[in-house]
Design a protein around this nucleic acid. Structure first.
Lengths: 217, 217
DNA sequence: TTCGATACCGAACGAACGTTCGGCCTGTCA
DNA sequence: TGACAGGCCGAACGTTCGTTCGGTATCGAA
């Protein structure tokens, strides 16, 4: 009898990678199990040895694609906090944290473009349990960036409100994530240079105070 | 005999709006003609009175959703150029152009969220002719922003290379377009305030010079 | 040498898909 | 009053979908 992959044996990486490639260009619903069987060089039924159903495959792509990125971000925040009995000035440290986070994000993006594209299509096609799990990973990740942006601003000008920090964090994510639609190594150079440009643009830009008349809350 | 809508009679707006709403949350392939018939309160076959096939419906959503936005941007650029026998200083004028473009973009985004989401899913499911048409609209639109960003920078610091301007334009689009994933009127206030924040962040950020060591080209 | 688990397959299932067809109303205009 | 076109159906077409089932080849442990 087949064991229908209750997360028992790990799903082979080549299946996940090739599925991500297909889904990133055609979408989840636009990619059929027969497409996947053909490109992975397996039979249709053979695929079901590695995951219970198509939806779980989507979950695995999301989970395995995103976890290393989150782990790295959590490590960076941990280093920032442990070096923070504050003999070191908070200013340079918060700049370094933000810079490292951006570099980590874009570096991973550049080498996992397909998985990141799938990730951005959203959790909507997933079962509530799987969708919830992925959404939690994303929230934890967002929270780290939110923290870093808050620390950066706090060390340099009058404190921003929580929702202002949140908005600015989303602007930063916008600059970083939008590259999925236009970036190519040949035309735009290595991601490291791009990361630096985004870091510079964001940090120079986010410190501006809004005119008092337009202040929110 | 039915005339299968060779762009003859215009497709009713309610069909386009409700189709965009459905497709924006489930994707093109994830939305069936039966879904559309149910939500528009029509029969399955009755839908085909207004467009030749599902793919043309996608094209119509894209075309009708994007055209007003492009027209507005072209008008703004026209006004900028006509006011440019340069008695007026180029600096303030280029700032106003950029500010207006951002305001136009976000204003339209805010009131056509579903159509814009569909637009961002890409032209891939469309036939080559339709896809090509939409891609051209997008290119003309991008080119206008590219022009505005170039003018803005040129009036304020040493000239940037074409690819640097292009990259910065994409960063701006990233900040603006990414809002589709997080923005809600209740939590984040009116789009006008957001437009101003993006304008400020971008203009303050984009003038920074990259350290010579990292200069490209 | 037998055993059981692992990795895989061909063939088929029922359901859902996009699309088509013939016909039915309800106006308008001659 | 009759002809006709536009807007819309119900029912069905052939195809493709995700998934299942019974079976086979391989291989390390007993």
């Amino acid at each position: 009898m087949d064991t229908p992959a209750l997360a028992s044996q790990p799903c082979p990486d080549d299946i996940l990678a090739q599925s991500a490639a297909l889904m990133s260009s055609q979408g989840y619903h636009g990619t059929s199990m027969r497409d996947l069987a053909r490109t992975t060089g397996r039979s249709l039924s053979g695929l079901y040895h590695h995951f219970a159903n198509k939806e779980e495959l989507l979950y695995l792509i999301n989970e395995r694609g995103f976890s290393p990125l989150l782990a790295n971000a959590e490590r960076l925040r941990g280093e920032y906090r442990s070096g923070n009995g504050r003999p070191v000035a908070a200013g340079p440290a918060s700049a370094a944290l933000l810079c490292d986070l951006i570099g980590s994000h874009l570096g991973y993006f550049g080498s996992h473009l397909n998985e990141m594209r799938v990730l951005m299509f959203g959790t909507q096609p997933m079962s509530s349990a799987h969708g919830q799990a992925i959404r939690q990973l994303k929230e934890r990740y967002t929270e780290i960036f939110n923290f870093a942006v808050g620390q950066y601003i706090e060390a340099r000008r009058e404190a921003a409100t929580a929702t202002e920090i949140e908005r600015k964090t989303y602007l930063l994510f916008g600059m970083m994530n939008w590259i999925f639609g236009w970036y190519s190594l040949d035309e735009h150079g290595p991601v490291e240079a791009l990361a630096e440009e985004i870091y510079t643009t964001f940090t120079k830009g986010c410190l501006a105070l809004r005119p008092a008349a337009a202040r929110d809350e």
